[in-house]
Design a binder for these strands. Sequence first.
DNA 1: GCTTGACATTCCCATCGTGGGAAGGTTTAG
DNA 2: CTAAACCTTCCCACGATGGGAATGTCAAGC
Lengths: 132, 132
Amino acid sequence: MNIGEAASGSGVSAKMIRHYEAIGLLPPAARSEAGYRRYSGADLHTLRFIRHARDLGFDLATIAALVSLWQDRGRESREVKQLADAHIATLRDKLAQLQGMIGALEQLMACCHGDERPECPILDELAGIDKP
Amino acid sequence: MNIGEAASGSGVSAKMIRHYEAIGLLPPAARSEAGYRRYSGADLHTLRFIRHARDLGFDLATIAALVSLWQDRGRESREVKQLADAHIATLRDKLAQLQGMIGALEQLMACCHGDERPECPILDELAGIDKP
DNA sequence: GCTTGACATTCCCATCGTGGGAAGGTTTAG
DNA sequence: CTAAACCTTCCCACGATGGGAATGTCAAGC
């Protein structure tokens, strides 16, 4: 199949498929006589793998590692779990950051009238009425 | 004060101060005879305002709006609250996404032995043993 | 056969916030 | 006078994605 079909069949855009190939996440695709990239069912499978990994928030470098573990039948599941573990730690850090921001904002929102008056605790806070 | 002092005093790097000026978030700084940027206490205050807004996750375009509301004594707090409200919605979206990823990963982690055996439910899932 | 439209190719540029580093000028302390 | 610690501008990089231009190819309809 051509790249368009591979894209719609995998959920990875054609643009991204080319990019993944360019950065070495995917091996160079086979080419038709006219130079069109051609994809097999196995290629599609790999693309879907990548897509799912992206959906879980893995970065492309880690995905490259996951793909190679996936294709290595002698892998140790320990290695996979380590990658997932490191990733989940990163996600939890981000989560904590986000929760901090949301919590702070919610508090400010609760104090701000949000009407035609100019007084605004949100701006006051940003301006550095810092609580030590 | 010079840019280095403004940077350490505000928590915004010198690099970023120049960048903020370049994109118009900050007005062009005053210059010494030799061309060095010079900052006043008021400038420092603005830098700290920006820093705090960044800490709450606001993007620079929104921060520009916040700064101008801050400096407009006739503002309506409604406008500030609207910006904050839109931002908090964005953050909550990201939060939900993160939570989804973390939840999915946790489940997979719980199923994976993580030992020397090659069987790995994490890879299986990525490979698309999709549950409909 | 020829046109047309839907595909494909490569290449460059943009996003967003941040940092690295080069090549050069200034200021200050010893 | 020199060395260190500043400062300047300029260009490039990240990570993942998209937009779009200029160009080439394929399949269907007339």
